[in-house]
């Protein structure tokens, strides 16, 4: 990472701490902002956040590893989370999963080589009456069929650009 990028990253983190308050209770909101903007939380970020909030970096990494929406591994611009819980299972989530894997050429847990898509499982998304359901970043899709998977991916490629996280570090 370039020095200027590091400075920018630090500046962003300082601004978020300003916004959420410089105490421990601000930790998760700050990490959520980092995750949204950079799609992962690096060792460097954990160190900076720990410094600013005056806690041990191990505490920060303990929090990052606990929550499934936070992580240290870089992910794609679009994180697709397909619900695997019972009501979506009964509505055919396995076929949707298969089609996602086919169209993206990756398995669940993986990221496409171009850094665009990550495929993950989610537990119940609260759309059980309209399954199968999946989230693309923060957007929800319901009644997904193997056929509409393609449209969803195309929509990502076309319209999500502006909302997509910035990829620095490993993927830049």
């Amino acid at each position: 990472m370039l020095v200027s990028e590091r400075e920018q990253l630090r500046g962003n983190i300082e601004a978020w701490v300003e916004q959420y308050g410089s105490n421990r209770s601000a930790l998760i909101p700050v990490l959520e902002e980092v995750q949204r903007k950079y799609s992962h939380i690096s060792e460097y970020v954990m160190q900076v956040v720990a410094d600013i909030l005056d806690i041990h970096p191990v505490e920060v990494s303990g929090v990052v590893s606990f929550y499934s929406f936070l992580g240290r591994k870089p992910k794609g611009r679009f994180i697709i989370r397909l619900c695997r819980t019972i009501s979506c299972e009964m509505q055919g989530k396995d076929r949707v999963a298969r089609q996602l894997e086919n169209d993206l050429g990756i398995l669940f847990g993986e990221t496409t080589a171009d850094g665009n898509f990550t495929l993950e499982w989610a537990n119940c998304l609260g759309m059980c009456d309209q399954g199968p359901a999946l989230l693309v970043n923060e957007r929800i899709y319901t009644q997904v069929t193997p056929e509409t998977v393609h449209d969803i991916l195309e929509e990502c490629r076309r319209t999500f650009g502006v909302y997509a996280p910035q990829l620095t570090e490993e993927y830049a």
Binding site: I86, N123, C124, G126, M127, D129
Partner: peptide, 11 residues
């Protein structure tokens, strides 16, 4: 937090 499988009324 509505995470119980099959629950969506809070949403």
């Amino acid at each position: 937090d509505e995470g119980e499988p099959g629950t969506f009324k809070d949403r």
